[in-house]
């Protein structure tokens, strides 16, 4: 049980993160990044395809 404040709180609560939660973060990162990247590529290809 920890009571913390500010950056230290953020850091310590992150370090106490169990592996399942870390995996969830990892998946979320991959989901966000791949969705953004796909959309970026799709937009660029669209410009290229329109004449």
């Amino acid at each position: 049980m920890t009571i913390l404040q500010g950056c230290a709180q953020c850091l310590d609560s992150t370090r106490a993160t169990p592996p399942t939660v870390q995996a969830a973060y990892r998946h979320a990162i991959i989901l966000l990044a791949s969705a953004g990247a796909t959309l970026f590529i799709a937009g660029t290809l669209l410009l290229r395809r329109q004449r």
Partner: peptide, 8 residues
């Protein structure tokens, strides 16, 4: 510095 997973 926010405690990101070192691999990430």
């Amino acid at each position: 510095v926010a405690g990101l997973n070192p691999f990430a």
